Amino acid sequence: MNWSKFFAAGFFAVLNVAAFSAHADVTNESQARTHLDIKQVISIVDNSGGNCGIVNARMTYLDSSGTQKVLDYSKFAECGNQGS
């Protein structure tokens, strides 16, 4: 058996897997940057409870057609002791 052909085939298989993974990351990133149609924000609430760090938040808003929608997302908590 010709080992150089075996190693070359393995090398190209690894490159294909790496390229597929990179493509999947780009696809997920572009999906996360979806344009939101927000005409008016009704409320924004989070579950920080005074804690610092990343917390869950919920925004309720109206789109341009007047339909009420809800967006759940993560954000950094607003810590009252920053800069002290």
Score class of each variant (00 low, 15 high):
I54L: 11
R33F: 06
F20Q: 06
T34M: 05
G80I: 06
G50C: 05
S74H: 09
D25E: 09
A9F: 15
N2H: 15
Q31C: 04
L15H: 09
A8N: 15
L62K: 08
L36F: 13
A24K: 09
H35L: 05
S64M: 03
I54D: 10
S43N: 00
K69M: 00
V14F: 15
S64C: 02
S65N: 07
K39W: 06
K39T: 04
Q68V: 08
V26L: 11
N81T: 13
Q68I: 04
M1G: 15
M59C: 07
V26D: 14
H35N: 06
C79M: 03
C52V: 01
S21H: 14
V55Y: 11
S21A: 13
L36W: 04
N28P: 00
I38W: 04
L15E: 08
D25A: 05
S30H: 13
F76R: 07
R58P: 00
F76M: 05
A22S: 13
S65V: 12
T27R: 13
D72I: 04
Q40S: 11
A19C: 03
S30Y: 06
V55R: 03
L62P: 00
W3S: 10
F76D: 09
A32Y: 01
T34E: 07
V14N: 04
Q31W: 09
A13N: 12
N16A: 15
L62S: 02
F7K: 07
W3V: 11
M59I: 00
K39F: 05
C79H: 13
V26R: 10
E78A: 14
N28V: 07
K39L: 01
R58N: 08
T34N: 01
D37L: 00
K75S: 12
S21I: 09
S64N: 08
V70I: 08
A57F: 01
L71K: 10
L62G: 01
I54Y: 03
S65I: 05
D37F: 05
N28C: 08
S65F: 11
S4Y: 15
N51P: 03
F7G: 07
C79F: 13
V17W: 14
D25T: 00
H35D: 10
S48I: 00
S30K: 11
S4W: 15
V14H: 07
S65W: 14
R58Q: 06
A24P: 03
G80A: 13
S4M: 15
C52I: 02
G49H: 09
G66F: 09
F11Y: 15
N81H: 11
G80Y: 12
S84G: 13
Y61Q: 01
V26K: 06
M59L: 10
S74A: 08
N28L: 15
S48G: 01
C52T: 04
V70P: 00
Q40N: 12
D46K: 03
N51K: 11
D25S: 12
E29L: 06
N51A: 09
F7E: 08
C52L: 02
V55P: 04
L15M: 11
N56I: 02
F6R: 14
H35A: 07
G80L: 12
T27I: 10
S48H: 01
R33V: 02
T67S: 12
I38N: 03
S30T: 10
A19N: 10
A13M: 13
Q68T: 04
K75A: 11
T34Y: 02
Q68M: 05
